[in-house]
Design a protein around this nucleic acid. Sequence first.
DNA 1: TCATAAACGAGACGGTACGTCGGGTCTTTGC
DNA 2: GCAAAGACCCGACGTACCGTCTCGTTTATGA
Lengths: 200, 200, 200, 200
Amino acid sequence: MSTPNEQRRSERSRQAILAAALDLCRERGLAKTTVEEIAKRAGVGKQTIYRWWGSKAAVVQEALNERVNTTTDFPDTGDLRADLRTQMVVVAKAFASADFAPYVSLIAAAQEDPEIAASLRKVMIEPRAQACAERLRRGREQGELRADVDVDAVVEMLYAPLYYRLLLRTRPVTSEQVADIIDTAFEGLAPSGRDGTVGR
Amino acid sequence: MSTPNEQRRSERSRQAILAAALDLCRERGLAKTTVEEIAKRAGVGKQTIYRWWGSKAAVVQEALNERVNTTTDFPDTGDLRADLRTQMVVVAKAFASADFAPYVSLIAAAQEDPEIAASLRKVMIEPRAQACAERLRRGREQGELRADVDVDAVVEMLYAPLYYRLLLRTRPVTSEQVADIIDTAFEGLAPSGRDGTVGR
Amino acid sequence: MSTPNEQRRSERSRQAILAAALDLCRERGLAKTTVEEIAKRAGVGKQTIYRWWGSKAAVVQEALNERVNTTTDFPDTGDLRADLRTQMVVVAKAFASADFAPYVSLIAAAQEDPEIAASLRKVMIEPRAQACAERLRRGREQGELRADVDVDAVVEMLYAPLYYRLLLRTRPVTSEQVADIIDTAFEGLAPSGRDGTVGR
Amino acid sequence: MSTPNEQRRSERSRQAILAAALDLCRERGLAKTTVEEIAKRAGVGKQTIYRWWGSKAAVVQEALNERVNTTTDFPDTGDLRADLRTQMVVVAKAFASADFAPYVSLIAAAQEDPEIAASLRKVMIEPRAQACAERLRRGREQGELRADVDVDAVVEMLYAPLYYRLLLRTRPVTSEQVADIIDTAFEGLAPSGRDGTVGR
DNA sequence: TCATAAACGAGACGGTACGTCGGGTCTTTGC
DNA sequence: GCAAAGACCCGACGTACCGTCTCGTTTATGA
């Protein structure tokens, strides 16, 4: 994305652009945000944006990445279910927050732009999924999880319902949902025992 | 969406517009499809599109709804897990299909257009979720499910991972994923039985 | 312009169209008047206009022709200069009148539509020019005019300055202008006698 | 018409626009010339036209003004009638020329657009009328004209018949017409001398 | 007297051009 | 000597009217 000389780059302009982009995206969504507006609000020439980023989505992506809590550390108190709950409640609160909108816009943009999709996965999603998988692996070793589970699949099972509500807006994402997800996931749907109809 | 006289409407034009919109959307995605192109390909004036629809997304939504299998019936062989599997495999195959792209585009568009979001939920998502919930309820009555589960939450748990992969493209949606989801959901993550590890 | 059956034609619609066209033309000029507006104001379908006229200009032309004083009679009191003055003052007053605008619009339209130009000349201009030429011819026979003048050229000389001001709007058309034109035309510009330098 | 920065303006685009507009206007008249065509032929964005001009007529007006012989000098050989004839024949030839069409279109446009009318008078008509009036004034001082004539009215009397034929197309504008106009104007219509028929 | 066929009102239709917005590139200029 | 300012070419937007084309609904003969 960047042939020009990185060293001569104006940090002041860069920050102004990121801030303006994020603000506008929060105000009216990424789709209705224009590069022209970002430039004007940042007090910057359009060229300065095109020089360093490939699209407005890339700007928002960088802004978001820079501002979001970069800590992907997962709590580890020894109680897996409690730790999952702690972490997922944080995520749920974030999802429910109004100024999470730019992240949603970014996911939307990613549907028609593979480049955005790739960098979104790489920067935002996979590191966090990895951290969770890691914690699950440790839990499995401690016997808190069945030995045969595929932790990556479990990460999906746990977080997917949050994304489902976030993106389809069927219902709001809440802490209760988190509790529900964890309980159901751990205890299963089968009426008795994990091996199904046995004790019937 | 329609103040003009519905009765004088040209069905020929309507069909041509829906077909053109869907084709273009499959070819290059909704974002890169223009109303002008839809009109040209359909051999129609732009005004005819604007007269009957509020946006290109609305056109695609109607096209999709009209062409998609409207059967929301859920199989019921008496074996809940098998029926879920049957139905979810159908969904998974659809999600994996190349010409499912318009649906994905539509979900993306819905992120920044509440009207699209609402009609998407009402027309595409909720009827199918209801059908699944219904089947789950019957299964619960037959003792195939724990008596205390919230079927609506279960629907989310089951389908959310498919949407997760569809929209975040971390991995492809497959029949194996479906098997995994069902198994894990029914048997739970806990090492033995649903009531924790404590010896029974 | 008219293959349809003239006898079945609705006089009510015809009158409503002519009136609406003339009104709109007075209100905002022919250029900003649309067939759609004429139809709506006349309570008429667009097709009824297209059935009987070739253009909006043709409508205005017919309206104007029907409403204008069709008397092309020239006064003849025996005093040519007085009669010219009488008639030209009428014309000057018409030109100065606000609701003469449609006639001006029509002349403008004629500049880019030979059909309008032809019918304008035939219906509006030539009959009146002929009447004036006739009166001049009688005056010439009576010795009120030099025997060698070309009456058609004289008609032009007399009326052209009124059109000049009407169309170029350098100054308003007035009765004083009429007096001036007649005096100068009759007496000539040369300082003494009609044959110029003679008495020098 | 111009809020944008005149100094950054592209002269290349400006010239291309003026040329294209004039060409199209000659080919099919101003009424059938579209801004879109001008832009396309000039290899220019439409916005560049709208940025600097208020209408297609304004473009043609500027083009015409820039290309037309800006010399408004009137010949002065000492013989007023000869000088008038010289100059008016030039005008008559111009009026008769095929590529004078844009000027006619402009006069037509002026009938429904006061702004065009004003600039047309200011730029094209009045300077030339002034030059003629000036020459007439000098002639009057030299005794070639009656001392009491209003030179401005005379300008109108002389040129109006050319405009009459130009705009009403009753007959072609020719050099003969010019001769006729001058002879009649100077010698008058009255059978003998300017002070009536009474024998001197 | 009534059927029938034309003209009618309404207005949807395929188009063309409008005037505007914003994208991404290129040029000028001021700090 | 960079970068703000912004003019440029371009393509699409959503709208206004064009002139044509159905639709029922009057209306006005002529069988």
